[in-house]
Computed example of a mutant assay.
Amino acid sequence: MQHAIDRIMQTYNLMANRAEAASDEAREKVTGYLQSLFEGGETDMHRLTVCGLTYLRELDGSNDPVKAGYTGL
């Protein structure tokens, strides 16, 4: 699981410049989230990576479908 967390953080930090404190906070949050997925039975590191990135993007608001122009029609 640590490999997935490292990969998530590397990719997430490439997406935008973040302060060290913000990156540390994001790492803590995604670690807890991935731990719950792992305990729930998800063991595929690729899926954990994608889920973790999606989770962080939703937390910081960069994955907002309304801002992206999606209207649902």
Rank of each mutant, 00 (worst) to 15 (best):
R7T: 09
Q10T: 14
R27T: 05
M15C: 06
L14R: 02
G41A: 04
G40W: 05
E42W: 02
Y12C: 09
R27S: 03
G41E: 04
T54N: 10
C51E: 13
S36Y: 05
H46G: 15
P65D: 03
R27D: 01
V30A: 14
A22G: 02
A26V: 01
N13Q: 11
D44C: 12
E58K: 12
P65R: 11
M9S: 09
G32T: 10
M45R: 10
G61T: 03
V50E: 13
Y70R: 01
G61N: 05
V50G: 09
D44L: 13
T71S: 10
V50Y: 00
T11G: 04
L37S: 01
E20L: 02
A68F: 02
A4L: 08
Q2S: 14
G52R: 00
R7D: 03
D64S: 14
G40A: 12
T71A: 09
M15G: 03
K29Y: 13
E39A: 12
E25W: 04
M15E: 14
T49I: 03
T43E: 02
R7P: 04
K67H: 07
L37V: 07
P65C: 05
E20F: 02
I8V: 15
G72Q: 13
E42H: 10
L53K: 14
S62R: 07
E58I: 02
L37T: 04
G61H: 10
T31W: 00
R57V: 00
G72S: 15
G72V: 15
G52I: 05
R47W: 05
T49H: 08
Q2K: 13
D44I: 11
L14D: 06
A16T: 08
K29T: 09
Q2V: 07
